[in-house]
């Protein structure tokens, strides 16, 4: 098994190197941040994203990475999150920036439509904590779920830029409790109002009667006809939305010196 993994790792490194070389031959951009081994993007799309990722990474001193593979199980052992951490830490791959090797990696495993986010380094974890990662994936997962790769990756890069900027300004993105508080207060007010209306209804005891059930004689209702006839069947179909937040079972992860999230898209 271990031999297998070493062999697969070598295949990945070889594949990445081949890609880098191929793209490098076609254009002047070096593939470092957007590693599209599965081939979701055209050259122009890839080059544009690579440039943006490089700029954002260098500006903030934190690597922003996107990796697409056919099946994550070909590149490591364990869950999609585990494999992402293994790729990030693979010697010679050169992921992470600065002495703390700060960075965030988004890995897409296309054959089983699984994804993982891995955040490593003190600076990166300050910018992308658990709450932040949850908000970050909301930015791009719906696009990825609809196979809208360019918009999904663009959204991811833009959001990473914003998150890092906020962190540098000392106000990292965190869960906004106001929404939760507003819901809690609204529900509490609703419960209080229902109780008060029940108490208020006790003040009014005079009502005109609409029925006469107390005066029914001869043992109640005598049914003379009772027909239940089947007429037809109608069928409606609804496409099940690919919502990773609910159906994909997206969840937080920890391990390999960092934090992250994983799920399906």
């Amino acid at each position: 098994m271990k031999k297998n993994l070493i062999a697969l790792s070598l295949i990945l490194i070889l594949a990445l190197s081949l890609c880098i070389c191929a793209f490098a031959a076609e254009g002047s951009v070096e593939m470092r941040y957007v590693v599209d081994t599965y081939g979701l993007l055209s050259f122009d799309q890839w080059a544009s994203l690579e440039n943006r990722a490089a700029n954002i990474s260098e500006q903030h001193g934190c690597g922003i990475y996107i990796v697409t593979v056919d099946d994550y199980r070909n590149y490591g052992d364990g869950s999609v999150y585990d494999v992402t951490t293994q790729i990030y830490h693979r010697s010679g791959a050169g992921f992470g920036m600065g002495s703390g090797r700060d960075g965030i990696m988004l890995l897409l495993s296309m054959n089983n439509r699984k994804y993982a986010l891995f955040v490593y380094g003190e600076k990166a974890e300050y910018a992308f904590n658990d709450d932040g990662l949850e908000q970050l994936e909301e930015v791009f997962l719906s696009d990825l779920g609809n196979d809208n790769w360019l918009d999904g990756f663009s959204g991811y890069l833009k959001a990473c830029d914003q998150f890092l900027t906020c962190a540098e300004e000392g106000e990292p993105v965190r869960d906004n409790p106001l929404g939760l508080i507003a819901i809690a207060v609204a529900v509490s007010c609703g419960i209080a109002l229902v109780i008060c209306l029940i108490l208020k209804s006790m003040m009014k005891t005079v009502h005109q009667k609409a029925g006469a059930s107390e005066y029914v004689a001869d043992g109640g209702l005598h049914l003379t006809q009772q027909i239940d006839q089947y007429t037809h069947t109608t069928k409606t179909r609804r496409k099940i939305e690919k919502n990773p937040g609910s159906s994909g079972g997206s969840h937080s992860e920890r391990g390999a010196g960092g934090i992250g999230r994983s799920g399906s898209f």
Binding site: G220, L221, D228, Q229, R237, I240
Partner: peptide, 19 residues
Amino acid sequence: YEVTETDHFSVLRAGWLSF
């Protein structure tokens, strides 16, 4: 897909009550 199959029925009730 989530499929909803609905059976429709025509129902008749007749009867009487004494008051």
